[in-house]
Nucleic acid binder design. Structure first.
Length: 903
RNA sequence: GCGGGCAUAGCUCAGCUGGUUAGAGCGCAUGGGUCACAACCAUGAGGUCCCGGGUUCGAAUCCCUGUGCCCGCACCA
């Protein structure tokens, strides 16, 4: 058996182990299997992206669930892939083109530009998947997909056509969000609102009849060139007489009507609103109701049109300044007011979005949203934590039609053709040979220039990756998927859209659970970002501390759905824990005397028979049974936590088991047997050490896959075995299965005895520490017990630095000068006169008495309360009674002890 | 305006469907180069669970009000 290096050094093995996983195809999952399916589709990162902490968290959660289910015997499939990220990628490649060659994308043309993007993706698009490997992602790389690959494209086109044929996709001249920087329309979800410091200008529109006219307030005076009316509320007494009259647009000179409409709120501004149907969604509506002309005064580059007269060609904000100055000079500005204006910004480039009229494609959302709402209400779809279901519902219920066309080149081109001869629009999977109306062919049929919103293709991800629209074996086996893991920030963009698309195409919600996590914030609590300089690169952290340590930190960090704060100290703690485990394993291996046969040699059955010729004799002691039973208990708790998606609880339990129980107690308890025990006792200890370690490694494996598998390898075993079985019940014990009732009772006794032993050891250590006993000095201990405690004296001696243990039963035998500790069922005395400060001892006891009196008093009151005894469950009452009894007992002993001291 | 979250030890946070003498990590204090581990070990100090009401036999936990932070949606008169 090889020896482990003295210090845990993840660099030595993480990459090697990942390569072996991948080479062996360990994460590949075929549909043809009897195992029950467990499926996760990975939220596809953008090809322009680099792995950041948010990904690291997201991926780690998915990996834990996948690995755990795989160990449990599921056909666990985790489908990876990347997203083409229409806008982000196009802008990126266009920028590079301009930087390197000084050309715009229009200069090179559509085809050539797209060739460049594909080339770019070829070279850089896979970077992130390499980074995912560093994290340890156990996804099925053989199934890696791309939202623009052939299959996905086919799915997108099919989806579009089906929606169109059902009347759920339409083309229309509507008000949309336009990003002048990216040069494309955006959906409502892609617009972020930000508060911007701005102003209201109160501007007088004089009456056409020479009257006073009306004063309107606006934050966007430059849109005045597009004004085609002023609206007032029909019940607003102030403006009653104006309705039906006309006012004059100052300086422009155009006469516009004053219309009565319910839209203006008499409480706001002056109660009169300028109406610009071409540049404001609300005004657009008003314009429709009153058949107002739509005057476009701002173009797609956010520059003023000819409607703005002398300002034509000027940027919208430049124009605002100049125009307001001109109005003020002419005396039309009544007053100005500083105000915060919530402004729509492009989520990609943060440019102020311009509401514009244009021809776009839309998805009619109401009919699609209804079943998606029903899926949540019926429980077919569940959010973890539940509150995010509310967020989802709210959005679905207030949903508006989805603008899906984008004025870009990189993306799925809209499968619609226009016939130049007759004007017909043909929507089809493939380019039609001829116009179905007029028979025109060839160049007369022009395909729509636009591409689809990136999220239109992401919406199909849970089934397009499994082969839809074909009826594949994969789809039948793995759809609907089990759980979708993602951040709350893309519930609208992605989760909601997958749900209605999945229901529309497949008839079922694409997943039964949505497991939502929060953001990883910077150490300062701010969102991690380049501009703030608080970002942390996961790869750098992996390089410094290992992927396992990073994973541990991310998993342990916080509760589901809550944001977590980055802390490098926590990663260091996690690395230290890994080192602890590493050394525990090193200890075990060093003490096996080369008996590698103590490790399990196949998936389920342990093979503990020694291969060195001897016949194994095993004689389990209390500590053996205790650690086996404890491990079994914790394994159950870990499983339970995982089932509830409480990953941080799960990993903490494994951590405590390894660190507190196995390392701090079991290994210490067993040392004497390893160093000086007889053969049987030694062999038993070795066997238990190994079999428990095996299960510990398994329990930790989904969370920290690298170190666990590396250690497993040092045990001389095939790495696959660790992934074969999830611990349920007790670890294999060499003396047989011990699962009958008698054995359980035996275990229970052993557990109680070891727990009592731990109390005694801790008590003695405490006394020693408080008294400042020298480290090496042995002290005698006297135990007074009601019943003989059956505690292994040699353990007390070894673990607490004790020379002699005397058990007494009679009050008279209590040593005179001694430090003491009162435990359950016994009192521990350390009779070392020179160490005892009777004054301090007395004070300690007085405090203790006070505390116990108070505590017992509370319990008594509780138990005297008839409401409690009659209404609380019997076992709760029983538990309280037991607490009271032990409190009383401790109190009694404390008082006795005080009396002795006072005497 | 509508909706949601958070407030627990010096710091960062757990604490699920009410019953714990309220926990962890880090930090702090004391002692220790012990032969798995100083990336360690042992021991300890430290908390009116934001304020105020309510429900209940019982509230950190459920409900309401308030205060303070944070987020999402809507709103560019």
């Amino acid at each position: 058996m090889q020896e482990l290096a003295k210090t845990y050094n993840p660099k030595d093995f993480e990459q090697r182990i990942y390569q072996s996983w991948e080479q062996d195809g360990d994460f590949h999952q075929e549909a043809a299997t009897d195992k029950p399916p467990f499926t996760i589709v990975m939220p596809p990162p953008n090809i322009t992206g680099q792995l950041h902490m948010g990904h690291a968290l997201d991926q780690t959660l998915q990996d834990v669930l996948t690995r755990w289910r795989r160990m449990q015997g599921y056909a666990a499939l985790w489908v990876p892939g990347t997203d083409h990220a229409s806008i982000a990628t196009e802008v990126r490649v266009a920028d590079e083109l301009f930087e390197k060659e000084g050309k715009t994308k229009e200069d090179v043309g559509r085809e050539a530009f797209l060739d460049r993007v594909w080339l770019w993706r070829e070279i850089y698009g896979g970077r992130i998947t390499e980074q995912q490997r560093r994290l340890g992602d156990s996804c099925d790389w053989e199934r890696e997909r791309f939202t623009m690959d052939e299959g996905c494209n086919k799915a997108v086109v099919e989806f579009f056509v089906r929606l169109y044929r059902k009347g759920l996709i339409y083309r229309g001249y509507r008000m949309i969000n336009w990003c002048p920087q990216c040069g494309t329309s955006l959906s409502d979800a892609e617009v972020e609102h930000e508060d911007v410091q701005g102003q209201y200008w109160y501007i007088r529109y004089p009456g056409a009849d020479g009257g006073e006219g009306v004063v309107v307030a606006t934050s966007r005076p430059e849109t005045m060139f597009g004004d085609t009316a002023v609206a007032v509320h029909p019940d607003d007494a102030r403006y009653k007489d104006l309705i039906g009259k006309t006012v004059v647009l100052p300086l422009v000179g155009r006469e516009i009507p004053v219309v009565a409409d319910p839209y203006p709120d008499p409480e706001k501004g002056t109660g009169a609103v300028k109406i610009t149907p071409a540049h404001d969604p609300n005004d657009f509506e008003v314009g429709q109701r009153h058949s107002l002309p739509q005057v476009v005064c701002i173009d797609f580059e956010a520059k003023m049109t000819a409607e703005a007269g002398q300002y034509e060609g000027m940027d919208r904000y430049e124009c605002r300044k100049a125009w307001v100055a001109a109005l003020a000079d002419a005396g039309f500005v009544v007053k100005t007011e500083d105000v915060v204006i919530p402004t729509g910004m492009c989520y990609r480039c943060a440019t102020a979005v311009e509401p514009m009229l244009s021809n776009q494609w839309f998805v009619k959302m109401k009919p699609l949203a209804e079943p998606a709402i029903a899926a949540l209400k019926s429980g077919e779809l569940k959010f973890v934590p539940e509150r995010f279901g509310k967020t989802y519902l709210r959005w679905m219920e207030e949903i508006r039609d989805w603008c899906i066309s984008r004025q870009l080149w990189w993306g799925h081109r809209i499968p619609a053709w226009y016939c130049d001869s007759c004007g017909k629009v043909i929507v089809a999977q493939k380019r039609p040979l001829a116009c179905s109306t007029c028979g025109a062919t060839g160049d007369a049929l022009r395909q729509d220039e636009d591409v689809l919103d990136t999220w239109f293709s992401s919406a199909l991800w849970p089934f397009s990756t499994l082969g839809w629209p074909e009826d594949t074996e994969d789809l039948r086996k793995f759809y609907p998927t089990s759980v979708l893991v993602t951040g709350y920030d893309i519930i609208f963009f992605w989760v909601a859209r997958m749900v209605f698309s999945g229901i529309f195409c497949m008839g079922k919600s694409p997943f039964s659970h949505v497991f939502i996590h929060g953001l990883v914030r910077g150490a300062d609590g701010q969102k991690m970002s380049k501009s703030l300089g608080n970002g942390v690169d996961p790869l750098e952290i992996i390089g410094k501390y290992g992927a396992d340590a990073l994973r541990f930190m991310l998993l342990h960090g916080s509760a589901a759905g809550n944001d977590m704060r980055w802390s490098e100290e926590s990663v260091i703690s996690a690395r230290n824990f890994a080192n602890k485990l590493w050394n525990a394993a090193r200890f075990v291996i060093m003490n096996l005397d080369g008996r590698t046969q103590f490790a399990p040699t196949d998936g389920g059955q342990a093979q503990f028979a020694p291969t060195d010729g001897g016949q194994a004799q095993f004689a389990p002691t209390d500590e053996d049974r205790w650690i086996l039973a404890t491990t079994a208990r914790v394994a159950g708790e870990v499983t339970e936590a995982l089932e509830k998606f409480e990953l941080s609880v799960a990993i903490e339990k494994v951590y405590d088991l390894i660190r507190d129980e196995y390392c701090d107690w079991y290994i210490e308890l067993v040392k004497s047997r390893l160093y000086g025990g007889d053969e049987t006792s030694k062999r038993t200890a070795q066997a238990v050490l190994v079999s428990v370690l095996s299960d510990l490694l398994r329990l930790l494996h989904p969370f920290m896959p690298f170190i666990t598998e590396e250690i497993w390898g040092y045990l001389g075993k095939d790495g696959k075995l660790i992934r074969d079985r999830w611990p349920a019940g007790r670890p294999d014990a060499p003396w047989g299965p011990l699962s009958d009732a008698a054995a359980d009772a035996d275990d229970a006794g052993a557990v109680a005895r070891i727990e009592a032993l731990k109390d005694v050891v801790r008590a003695v250590r405490n006394i020693r520490a408080e008294a400042g006993t020298e480290q090496g000095k042995k002290v005698p201990v006297v135990l007074m017990a009601d019943a003989p405690p059956a505690l292994a004296e040699h353990h007390i001696k070894a673990l607490a630095g004790v020379s002699e243990v005397t058990v007494i039963a009679d009050e008279k035998d209590v040593p005179k000068d001694a430090a003491s500790a009162i435990l359950k069922g016994m009192v521990v005395y350390v009779p070392l006169a020179e160490l005892v400060d009777n004054e301090a001892e007395r004070e300690k006891l007085l405090k203790e008495r006070e505390r116990l009196e108070k505590y017992a008093g509370q319990l008594e009151a509780k138990l005297a309360n008839e409401g409690f005894t009659s209404k609380a469950p019997a076992q709760v009452v029983e538990a309280e009674r037991a607490k009271l009894n032990s409190a009383r007992e401790a109190l009694e002993k404390t008082i006795e002890r005080l009396e002795v001291l006072m005497a």
